[in-house]
Amino acid sequence: MRSNTFKTLLLGAVFLGAGAVAASAGTLDDVKAKGFVQCGVNGAGLAGFGAPDDAGNWKGLDVDACRAVAAAVFGDPSKVKYTGLSAKERFTALQSKEIDMLARNSTNTMSRDTQLGITFTGVNYYDGQGFMVKKALGVSSAKDLNGASVCVQSGTTTELNLADYFKSNGMTFNAVVFEKQEEADAAYDAGRCDAYTTDASGLYSIRLKMTNPDDSIVLPEIISKEPLGPAVRQGDDQWESIVRWSHYAMLIAEEFGVTQANVDEMKSSENPEVQRLLGVGEGVDFGTPIGLTKDWAYNIIKGVGNYGESFERNVGEGSPLKIARGLNALWTKGGLQYAPPIR
């Protein structure tokens, strides 16, 4: 509460400044002047999405979204500073300009996209909400949870989906709501709740943090749509384009087989889409119009890799989470990840 109140006061102070300031144009100029992108990521550390590794370096799918933007702007993916944010703090931090972009497993919802003065730039992970219960309860479906106590984190879509799900299934429940994820985890671990609920992606890594992970199981039901993606402030179209197209560039690269390893060879590709992506050829420049250089996407792929590589490394087979591509496969492989063409 303390930090949140503080942020709100800060927000108040920002909006109190004399004379109305032009909404928030010029983020790119600010970022260039500072020399780094200030990126809001998961504060508790969500393995695979945003968490510091043993050496203290931030790693994850969301972290790669920040790194891609830094690569596009500076040609160097390491020019990022991270701000760890809780569910409650994240949007205020963005509104008050404490961060330049938010990449923190945040669900795009209509009210967030339209009423907070922020815009979601895309979906870097299609998720859904699930439940985890103690095995000893003998429950195999979320439909059996009538009367259960459920531990949940406040300030999330999770809190609302939980209520909708029980109500629409005619079941009662008691929500025990915590401000911090660690506290919700600990209370569930100590037996305060029968079930724990959050995004399915988070459930697996949280289960691994329990004293006895094998005492808990994740139930099969997915009760909501959670399109997670980066967000920026409304009113700065240029910056919004940069963040949106950084994600698209990674998708297009995967679609056309451009990888971190072969990106230099690919510069001599005959494929016109690849040439436009990498800014190869006379007059092929899609970067300058958005304030970047013509090799903006080359820099992203060179520095971070394509979407598939980032996925496998952070949450897929190359990670402890071993999450299947599923909905997050490219549209050409039966998934939902789809980028408009560069033209």
Binding site: N4, L11, K88, S111, S154, E159, V177
Partner: peptide, 24 residues
């Protein structure tokens, strides 16, 4: 709110604030 007791700060300055976004 640190221990999940639903006081004014947890309920109103927590859940309501986040759902509606009307922080100020």
């Amino acid at each position: 709110l640190a221990i999940g007791y639903p006081d004014l700060v947890a309920v109103f300055a927590g859940s309501t604030l986040n759902i509606t976004g009307h922080a100020i």
